[in-house]
């Protein structure tokens, strides 16, 4: 029988977590605030679009996804005070003007014939960007000090992967003709240009690249 009073290493042999991480408290809070902001703009858009898409399956899926992103926003909102940001609205902001312009363009399609444009913006531009940003945060932050953010990000990424896959499949099922393909590519190109200009959802350096983007308005 082993001796329960015999000293053991504080960390299990397989625990490879290290200090420090890439982000200090301020940077982590800034990123989390930007995440909350983008999740809010996304769930609002999905909610608004429900009434404007004629496809019944898309309507129901938007209704479901809408709640997922609202929950993500709630998780980020709850994390902010723990990162010393008591006024959670202060950091709930776009990373820069270009990001705000991107979201404005994302929200733009309204007509019932524009389901492809609506979905491309969400599932081929924004969600891959979010997955990238959250993954970078998850991998880069200290797994000791920023563990609560990581835990939230892990739950959120699970949703993001599932929803992205479902959205991509929706798009594949909607794009049948060369004209529809052209519309999807054009829309993706327009929005990608804006998000590149913004430098990602938390601005330049979203996924660790440090090159300043001219005109990003940081």
């Amino acid at each position: 029988m082993s001796d329960p009073f015999k000293p053991r290493p504080a960390f299990a042999p397989w625990d490879r977590r290290e200090l420090p991480g890439l982000f200090d408290v301020e940077e982590s809070a800034r990123r989390v605030g930007a995440y909350k902001w983008i999740e809010m703009r996304l769930f609002e858009a999905l909610g608004g679009w429900i009434a404007t898409v004629p496809e019944l399956d898309v309507k129901m899926i938007l209704g479901r996804h809408c709640y997922h992103h609202a929950w993500h926003a709630e998780l980020f909102d709850k994390r902010l005070p723990e990162l010393r940001e008591m006024n959670t609205d202060r950091l709930c902001a776009p990373a820069n003007d270009a990001m705000e312009a991107f979201v404005e363009a994302l929200h733009e399609p309204d007509a019932p014939e524009l389901t492809i444009e609506k979905l491309v913006g969400v599932f081929r531009v924004l969600m891959p960007r979010k997955i990238a940003a959250y993954t970078f945060h998850l991998n880069g932050t200290s797994r000791v000090t920023d563990a609560p953010t990581q835990r939230s990000l892990e739950f959120i990424l699970q949703d993001e992967w599932n929803d992205w896959r479902e959205g991509e499949m929706l798009l594949q099922s909607l794009i049948d003709t060369p004209e529809e393909l052209e519309r999807a590519i054009r829309r993706q190109h327009e929005l990608e240009a804006l998000v590149v200009r913004a430098g990602g959802i938390t601005g330049p350096g979203t996924i660790g690249t440090t090159t300043e983007v001219e005109g990003a308005g940081v």
Binding site: G47, G63, C66, Y67, A70, A73
Partner: peptide
Amino acid sequence: KLDMARQCWDEA
């Protein structure tokens, strides 16, 4: 808004 989002899921 969070409650409305939850309601969206329920209604869907």
